[in-house]
C-alpha cells in the first residue's frame, strides 16, 4: 500500500463535476483507493463518497492505494488534481 498527500487546487473544490472526474479516474485501476480528509475516509470510486469530503480549495487530502497498479493510480490522481480539473 502506498500513500500521498495532495492539495485541492481548483477554486470551487471537489464539487459534483470534479468529483465525477476523480471517480472515473479512480475507476480505471484495480487498486483499492481511498481519500482521507481530516479523518474522514471515503472510497475514491464512489461519487457520493468523494462529494462527502466537501473538500474546498486548499484542503489536504491523503490518497491511499492498495493493489497491483497502486503506483500508477496515485500518479494519475495526482495529475488530475494538479490539472485543477481544467476549470481555470
Amino acid at each position: 500500500m502506498i500513500e500521498k498527500t495532495i492539495t485541492v487546487q481548483n477554486k470551487l473544490g471537489l464539487h459534483a463535476r470534479p468529483a465525477a472526474l476523480v471517480v472515473s479516474e479512480a475507476g480505471r485501476f484495480y487498486a483499492e483507493i481511498n481519500l482521507n480528509k481530516d479523518g474522514l475516509e471515503v472510497n475514491a470510486k464512489s461519487i457520493m463518497g468523494v462529494m462527502m469530503l466537501a473538500a474546498e480549495m486548499g484542503s489536504q487530502i491523503l490518497i491511499t492505494a492498495d493493489g497491483q497498479d497502486e503506483e500508477m493510480a496515485i500518479q494519475a490522481l495526482e495529475v488530475l488534481f494538479a490539472s485543477k480539473f481544467d476549470e481555470e
Binding site: 464539487h15 459534483a16 474522514l40 457520493m48 462527502m52 469530503l53 466537501a54
Partner: peptide, 18 residues
C-alpha cells in the same frame, strides 16, 4: 444519510446545496 450529513456539515453553501 451518512453522505448527506457529511455534506451538510460543510461551511460552504455551495457544497451544502448538493
Amino acid at each position: 444519510n451518512t453522505a448527506i450529513a457529511a455534506i451538510e456539515a460543510s461551511d460552504h453553501a455551495f457544497f451544502r446545496e448538493r
